[in-house]
Structure formats: structure tokens, C-alpha cells
Computed example of a mutant assay.
Amino acid sequence: MGGRIRALRKQRGWGVQQLADAGRVSRRMLTDIELGQANPSLATVDRVARALDTDFAALALPEDDAAGPEVEGTLVWEAPDGSHALLLGATQDPRAELWRWTLAPTGRYDAEPDRRGAQEIHHVLSGRLTLALETGPQVLGPGQSAVIASDQQYAYLNEGAEPAVFVRVVTGA
């Protein structure tokens, strides 16, 4: 992803500081992202993508199927505890993203608000997922689903003893 960001930045004739300013990210963070030495938040990558007139999925997904069908998705986020998020696919119009998340026991991901009107659909495959929302927590078990507005502060938590595995669909972000 860092290589794509650098290539798009150079195509525009922008320096690192110019893209950092446009994407509301520090120059240091942008440099680390381009070098593959950072684990930026999904919102940070999204801001950089918008500054480059593209979207998150265009930066994160492989450009072709050269990896073959055995690849489940593109690893976009991971934490030291083994929690991770895979981007499985995306559409442009309407804009939607399909994700598979795994949160280790006691794992947490703090999200930043998306654009006004954006939504997420969550479907739990195994474990228990707590959605920490401004209106209060919502707990989902295996086979349960929920739709939330993602234009608010929210977080994903696993307060259980086994990994929480869930599918996430993002629309309008």
C-alpha cells in the first residue's frame, strides 16, 4: 500500500509534506506508511486516499489476481495480540467494502467517525463482539448481525475468552 501511495503522490508532482497536509497526517507518519514501517489506522489511510482522489480499497486491494484464489484478502490492520482485519473486496458505485475481522481475547479497535450517513453491517461468525457506540454497547454472538451508523465515535471489543470473528460491510464511508 505504501508503494501505491508514493506512486500516486509522485504522479501528482507532490512532495511528502504536501500530501501530509492534504491528508491531515504528519509528515513522519506518511513517510513511515510509504516505507511500509507504520501500522496506520484505517481512517488515516482513508484520509490519504481521499487527498489523492482515490479510495481506501484502491490503495489496499491487489491490482490483479496474480496471488491466486488461495488468498483470502488483503491484510490491512493487525495488532500485536494477533487481532487483524482483511479487506476482501470493494465496489465503487455504490461504494461498499467487505471485511473479515478477527479480534483476539481482550482485543480492541478504536475507529474514527466516517462521513455523515456512513453505515456498517456486522455479522458475527464466532465468539462475541461488543460494539462500543455513543448510545451504549451492543453485544453480538455467533449468527447475530447489527447495522450501525459509523459517522460516530465507536470501537470493536472482544471481552470474551475466544477470538471474535466477524464480517463487516461498510457503505457510504
Rank of each mutant, 00 (worst) to 15 (best):
K10R: 13
K10E: 15
Q11F: 04
R12K: 15
R12F: 07
R12E: 06
G13K: 07
G13A: 09
G13L: 08
W14D: 14
G15M: 06
V16K: 11
Q17S: 14
Q17Y: 05
Q18N: 01
L19C: 11
A20M: 02
D21G: 01
A22F: 05
G23K: 01
G23D: 10
V25S: 06
L30K: 10
T31I: 15
D32P: 02
D32W: 11
I33G: 09
L35W: 03
G36H: 08
Q37V: 09
N39C: 12
P40T: 12
L42Y: 04
L42I: 15
A43K: 04
A43V: 10
V45N: 03
D46E: 15
R47G: 12
A49V: 13
A49G: 14
A51E: 05
D53K: 13
T54E: 11
F56R: 03
F56N: 01
A57N: 04
A57D: 01
A57Q: 02
L59I: 03
L61H: 02
P62E: 08
E63N: 12
G68D: 11
G68S: 10
E70M: 10
V71P: 01
V71I: 13
E72A: 15
E72M: 13
G73M: 07
G73A: 08
T74N: 09
L75T: 09
V76Q: 01
W77C: 05
E78P: 08
A79T: 05
P80N: 06
P80A: 14
D81M: 03
G82T: 06
G82E: 13
S83A: 08
H84N: 06
H84P: 00
A85G: 01
L87M: 12
L88R: 14
G89K: 12
G89L: 12
Q92P: 11
D93L: 06
P94S: 10
R95D: 15
R95M: 15
L98G: 04
W99E: 04
R100L: 13
R100T: 03
R100G: 01
W101F: 07
T102L: 13
L103D: 00
L103E: 00
P105K: 02
P105F: 02
T106F: 01
A111K: 00
E112K: 00
E112R: 00
E112F: 01
P113C: 09
R116Q: 12
G117S: 12
G117M: 12
A118K: 04
Q119S: 11
I121N: 01
L125V: 14
L125F: 07
S126P: 00
R128H: 12
R128G: 04
L129M: 08
L129H: 05
T130E: 07
T130K: 07
L131G: 03
A132S: 08
L133Y: 03
L133M: 10
E134A: 05
E134V: 02
E134Q: 02
T135V: 05
G136N: 05
P137G: 06
P137I: 05
P137N: 13
V139N: 02
V139K: 01
V139P: 00
L140D: 02
L140A: 04
L140M: 04
G141I: 02
P142S: 08
G143V: 08
G143C: 09
Q144I: 11
Q144S: 11
Q144Y: 06
A146R: 04
V147W: 10
A149Q: 12
S150F: 04
